[in-house]
Amino acid sequence: MKIVPQYVVSLTYNLYVDKDGNEELVEKTTEEQPLTFLYGAGQMLPKFEEELSSLSTGDSFDFRLSAADAYGEHDEEAIANLPKEMFTEAGLPAIGAVIPLQDQNGHRFQGQVVSIAEDAVLVDLNHPMAGQELHFKGQILNVRPANDEELSHGHAHGADGHHSH
């Protein structure tokens, strides 16, 4: 079947990024644990979905997303000074630790601790893959129409359409 919006896509991929001139594998899915998502529901990077738009079950793919089309360029300004009082319960995080945060609108995101000052914890809010070109290689395993429950929930419920428990 061909990939179209409102269909559930299951695929495997290897994701590579450039490290000092060499491609390094940073993420991988398998046929046993594929990436399964509702196509066109806004869960995936728009350019990622665009690259898959002409494919069908069984097709292979190999494409690159520029940093701008992936997680954006690295923003030197995206550093937050968090007051140390925020960490009294959990204790101060280690430098390099990735901590869960939430903005005033309830959006959850992660930041990486870059340093700890006298009264504040400095956190880099860039996505860990910001500023990197992403290279995806993989294969479309299955394409099927989404069921009513998946459409109403706005996400896939696994390769066969059922929640796994």
Rank of each mutant, 00 (worst) to 15 (best):
F136V: 08
R108A: 03
G106V: 00
F48R: 07
G72H: 02
H153M: 13
N14R: 15
L25P: 10
S164C: 14
V114C: 12
T88A: 11
P128D: 07
F87K: 06
E149Y: 08
P34A: 08
A146W: 06
A68Y: 03
T57D: 11
G131C: 05
E76F: 04
V113P: 01
K137V: 13
L125C: 03
S115P: 14
L125M: 11
A80P: 04
M129K: 08
A159S: 14
L82V: 08
H155Q: 02
E27V: 08
D59Y: 10
E85G: 09
G106T: 00
Q104P: 02
E76C: 00
Y39W: 00
H127G: 12
V26W: 09
R108F: 12
R64N: 13
L52F: 07
G21V: 03
Y13D: 06
A159D: 11
G96K: 04
N126V: 07
K2I: 01
V143S: 00
G131Y: 04
D124G: 09
Y71P: 08
G91N: 05
M86W: 13
N126L: 06
V26E: 08
K137W: 09
Y16C: 12
F87S: 05
S60Q: 13
Y13G: 10
F87M: 04
D160M: 10
S164L: 15
V143R: 00
A90F: 01
V121I: 05
Q6N: 15
D75L: 11
I140L: 07
A41V: 00
A97V: 06
G131S: 06
V143A: 00
V121R: 05
A156F: 07
S56K: 14
M44N: 10
V113E: 06
M129E: 10
T12E: 08
G158P: 14
F61Y: 15
Y71S: 07
F136L: 11
N105I: 02
A80N: 04
V4F: 05
L141H: 09
E50R: 01
L45I: 09
N147I: 05
S66C: 04
A67V: 03
L101N: 13
V121G: 05
D20A: 14
P100M: 11
G72W: 01
L122T: 12
E89K: 05
F48H: 09
E49T: 06
G106R: 00
S115G: 15
A68R: 11
G154P: 00
Q112P: 00
E50Y: 04
L55G: 03
K28F: 11
S10H: 14
F87T: 05
H155C: 08
A94E: 15
H157E: 12
E23T: 15
K84H: 03
S56A: 11
E118R: 11
